[in-house]
């Protein structure tokens, strides 16, 4: 699926990276612990998290992830948006909580 599909499935709002929505994604990871995200490299492309700070973007950068979804409607600050823009990472927010957000994406074919 594409990042645009992720947005539609999660009823999400794209915060930065509108121009990157046609990128393909195959895997996702849901976690608030960045070290756990860093522990398993599997070409995960989407990171779902309830954590909102600059290290989320840095973690995604290290892992070559292309899209971060903030769950529970969390809104990142300007510094985070700027960093994501510089690194070519899409930021979006969904009103959904972590569990249903992951479940919907899994049902639609994304894997862990």
């Amino acid at each position: 699926m594409t990042i645009a599909d992720v947005r539609d499935i999660l009823n999400a709002f794209v915060i930065t990276g509108q121009e990157l929505l046609d990128k393909e994604v195959h895997n996702a990871c849901g976690s608030d612990m960045m070290s756990d995200v860093l522990a398993f490299v599997k070409d995960q492309s989407v990171l779902l998290t309830g954590l909102v700070n600059a290290q989320v973007v840095r973690t995604a950068e290290m892992m070559d992830m292309v899209c971060i979804v903030f769950v529970r409607g969390k809104e990142p600050g300007e510094d985070i948006k700027k960093l994501a823009q510089e690194r070519g990472i899409v930021l979006m927010k969904t009103p959904l909580r972590m569990f249903p957000a992951c479940g919907l994406l899994y049902n639609a074919g994304l894997r862990g």
């Binding site: 612990m33 070290s35 860093l38 522990a39 290290q55």
Partner: peptide, 17 residues
């Protein structure tokens, strides 16, 4: 630190890995 997403005791093990 755990509130910031780290401090899970994975740092050095991840480095080794």
């Amino acid at each position: 630190i755990r509130m910031l997403g780290f401090g899970a005791g994975m740092g050095l093990p991840n480095i080794k890995k």
